[in-house]
Design a protein around this nucleic acid. Structure first.
Length: 280
DNA sequence: CAACGGTCCTGTAGGC
DNA sequence: TGCCTACAGGACCGTT
């Protein structure tokens, strides 16, 4: 579920909580989360490292370590972090869906425990050498909130695209961080039918979609993301953007623009919501 | 080679 | 109430 705004919210929280801190202990509760590394190798490489800062690239959470490795986490659908004061040692009890726990000694602060939970177990955590991180970075497309994402560049990218615009936006190699919710919402804001072929958009369509993508992502960051069920920030708080959604998940409801009833279409196996009256 | 379908998992909502 | 199916924020991988 987590898309760019959720990853940004989590990354900011992590940076505030643990930047400057030292990784004092690493526990891998589910080995698949660190594949293709073994749990032992991951633990050895991570333990003792200092975390310089934590940010985001697309939907990936990226921490820079003092040995210039990158600690990267893909939340995929249900990955979630929690941060709590370490406190006295608790008896071990079953922690459903717990994948990784890290004891962090912050720079000057009280030690805390960072836990990574993942119900559906699609999430992944890796340690990448600089050259390997560079490959990941190169594979991802432009950051939609950066100055590099201009209407002109967007127009060039869209040229000749045959995929429906909603599908086109989900490709992380083009615009990094847009997922299904925000792709669908951006199409509504821009008054574009999500099934339109990417290459068919005219200059005005492109300009509106460019603004819509940036606007929906920054509004969602300001509201700390969208929570349906799983997504939470570091302290367990919900996002607020679900209350601002115009069409996503609202099949059968009235279009917020007034005319029309929201419909659902399945594109490439995934739901797209749109208003047939105002999206063309 | 862009685009799409299948697949990896578990939980939940809704129909009957 | 309970059983069964469909679907969920992602993205790799193989095929067309």
């Amino acid at each position: 579920m987590p898309e760019l705004p959720e990853a940004e919210t989590i990354a900011r929280g992590l940076d505030a909580a643990v930047a400057g801190g030292r990784v004092a202990r690493v526990r891998i509760h589910r080995a698949e989360v660190v594949e293709p590394l073994s749990a032992a190798v991951f633990r050895r490489a991570f333990t003792g490292r200092r975390i310089a800062r934590i940010g985001r690239r697309g939907k990936w959470i990226v921490g820079l370590l003092d040995d210039s490795q990158r600690w990267v986490t893909q939340l995929r659908m249900t990955g979630r972090f929690t941060w709590r004061a370490a406190g006295p040692r608790q008896p071990l009890r079953a922690e459903p869906h717990l994948s990784v726990s890290l004891l962090i000694e912050p720079d000057g602060g009280e030690p805390g425990v960072l836990r990574f939970y993942d119900t559906r177990r699609f999430g992944r955590m890796r340690l990448l050498a600089p050259a390997v991180y560079a490959e990941l970075d190169a594979r991802l497309g432009v950051e939609p909130l950066s100055d590099a994402f201009t209407p002109a560049r967007f127009a060039r990218m869209l040229e000749g695209g045959r995929a429906p615009i909603r599908n086109w936006l989900l490709d992380q190699g083009r615009v990094a961080g847009v997922g299904n919710i925000y792709a669908v919402e951006a199409c509504h804001i821009a008054r574009l039918d999500p099934r339109r072929a990417a290459g068919d958009l005219d200059r005005n369509d492109v300009r509106r979609l460019h603004r819509a993508v940036r606007r929906v992502l920054s509004d969602a960051i300001a509201r700390r993301g969208t929570t349906f069920s799983d997504y939470r920030d570091l302290l367990g708080g919900s996002g607020d953007f679900q209350n601002a959604l115009r069409v996503y998940g609202r099949e059968g409801e009235a279009c917020p623009r007034g005319d029309g009833t929201i419909e659902r279409a399945v594109l490439a196996g995934r739901s797209a919501f749109y208003c047939p009256a105002c999206q063309r």
